Structure formats: structure tokens, C-alpha cells
Amino acid sequence: MKTTASNPRMARGYATAGADQPLRPFTFERRSPNDEDVVIDIAYCGVCHSDVHAAHNAWGMSHYPMVPGHEITGVVREVGKAVARFKKGDRVGIGCFIDSCTTQGHRDRDHEHYLPGLVLTYNGFEPGSKAPTLGGYSDSIVVKEGYVLSVPEALPLDAAAPLLCAGVTVYSPLRKWQVGPGAKVAIVGLGGLGHVAVKMARAMGAEVTVLSRTLKKRDDALKLGAKAVFATESPATFADLASAFDLVLSTVSGDVDWNAYLGLIRLDGTFITVGVPDGPVPVSAFPLIVGRRRLAGSYMGSIKETQEMLDFCARHGVTADIEIIAIQDINTAFARVAKSDVRYRFVIDLASLDKEGRAS
């Protein structure tokens, strides 16, 4: 379809119509681009565990029909006349949100993801509108220039896609707590987030230990850069590693005994969670008090920080370990993600949409 300022864009993708429904082919209209917008042909989109949660309404906040996907890479098709940073053909990415600070007096570029007025890439609403935001399980997207990331040439578009959520989600706390040479860091969980966290912490100069439920992924962890791997199903692990780490970063969403992990932290050290357990987690004051330890959380990253992360990854050769899938296999992929049966991130090749012609 020829693009004009008043002509809605038709897009193809996959959507779910409800919490108990599979994802199916879906044709919909993208908004017409404004002067400050970038129109992107999507090449790849990562499959985040939160996509599964959102599609199934696990958090009770889902809107349908839903086109998931917030780990998007692609190529600029065209730009509005006010766009200065991008041009046709540029390699770009879109992460977890497409606008921010919409209820504030100005944009806070350092803390925008923590402030009211955040517009999520999918399962949200366009500013000042009841139109839903629809994500990256589709062939195109229209986004304001200020929320578009530049993907360095050193990063392949497919393996870079998961960095737009998984990457910045672990990069942000590692940077915030100043992980660097000599730091002793433990990563809890070796999944989509954890495997990237190991690579990033190692690239920052830290000595990295992986704490996984079993030792099944020991060889993988060592290849990724970990110095040691311990099984958390063994009580001896928590005794042997008492007060061993400056920082423990938990990437898991399952049941975790935070009190036990706090015991692994040195004086003035920090336990950070980026995973979201399904229910409340009891915490005792004693393990916090005796080591002047901190318990903290972290939530993705700003656009500024996400670009910093991409540039860091390009310099250090950090990408996600991926399994490419066709969009037609997305429901199988969702089932495998729910069982942690992926090493370590599914990425959808959106060219696969062409195999079925125009979706309906």
C-alpha cells in the first residue's frame, strides 16, 4: 500500500483474541506516520517470557486482540520530515515502550521507565487515544524518532533482538550497582535473561558464578563466561558460598528463597531481582541487618540506557544465543518457553509471514 499522511497502514501479524486463545494470523491498521515518526519494516522479534504471561493474562492486565512483541529489530522504510537521526535503510530496534512521560511536564530521559505516562510497545494505548498498541509479531511498526534505537553494524539483527528487553533488563542493574573488574557476581538462573547477564557481567570484568537449580547447564554456563556453577537444589551450596558475592542478580520468576540468597552476599552487598515471582516472597530482617545488605529490584531501562547497552554489546561482542523460528510456530514456542525448553531465546523471522500470503 502506498504511504500517505492520511492513509492508514495495513500490517500483517499474529494476535491472540483472549487469554485461552492461541495466536493466529491477524491483519490490522498501523497509524499513519506523523512528521516525527519512523516507519520500520520488522525483520526479527524476540519471544520474551512476559509475552507468554501477557497473552495468557497472567497479571490480569491484558487487552485483546493482542499482538505481542517488544524485542524488535528491522530496517527503516521511511521517515517523517522532522526526523533527523534516521534515514531509509538504517538498522534499528524497538524495545519495551514507544512513548514516555506523557502525563509529565517534560521527558525524564534517565528515569522515564519508572514514571507515569509510559506507553508500552504492546498491550498499552496510544497517547490521548483508546487505540491499542500492537507489538512486534508483525511486519511493520510506526514509532516516534525518540524511541527508536540504532543497532550497530557489529550486531546481527536476529541475535540483537533479545537485547532490546532481556539485554537492557540485566545491563541496567549491573551498571547501576557499578559492576566492574574484580567484582564477584552471582547470576541466578540461566535462561533468556541469565545467559545474557553472564556475558555482560564478564565483559564488565566481573568474576561470574551461575546459580542454577541443577548442574544440567554447567557446560553452557562455563562457555558463556562463568567461572563456576553451583546447584541451588543442594543445601551445601548456600553454606559453601556464604558471604561470597558483592552482588547477586536473580533472573528467575519461580519460587525463590530470598533469605537464603541474601546470606550469599558480603557486607554492603546487594541482592537484585529482575524476575517476578508469581506470589509474595517473605523476607526476614535478620539477613539484611547482619550484613548491612540491600534488597533491590530493577525494571528494564530508559531509551538512553538501552542505546548505551547496544553500543556496549557491539564493542564486546555480546549477543543473545537464539533459536530462529517461523511465525507459524509461535504457539509451539510459547509452550516451550513455559517449560523453559529453549537455549536461550526464540527469535521470530518475520519474513516467514510471506509463506502464507495475506493474513486474515
Rank of each mutant, 00 (worst) to 15 (best):
E78S: 15
V79W: 07
G80T: 06
A82D: 15
V83D: 07
R91M: 12
R91L: 10
V92D: 00
I94F: 09
G95Y: 01
I98G: 00
D99Y: 09
S100F: 00
S100E: 03
T102W: 06
T103V: 11
G105P: 02
G105F: 05
D110I: 10
H111E: 13
E112K: 01
Y114N: 12
G117E: 08
Y122L: 04
F125W: 09
F125Q: 14
G128P: 15
G128I: 12
G128F: 15
S129W: 01
K130P: 00
P132N: 08
T133F: 13
Y137N: 03
S138G: 13
D139M: 10
S140N: 01
V142S: 11
V143Y: 04
Y147M: 12
V148R: 02
E153A: 02
A154G: 05
L155W: 14
L155P: 14
P156R: 07
D158W: 07
A159Y: 01
A159T: 15
A160K: 06
A161S: 14
A166T: 14
V168W: 08
V168N: 11
Y171P: 06
W177A: 00
V179D: 14
V179G: 13
G180H: 11
P181G: 04
G182N: 05
G182A: 03
I187R: 08
V188N: 07
G191Y: 02
G192S: 12
G194L: 11
V198T: 12
R202A: 14
R202F: 02
A203R: 11
M204L: 15
G205I: 01
A206L: 04
E207F: 06
V208Q: 06
V210D: 00
L222R: 14
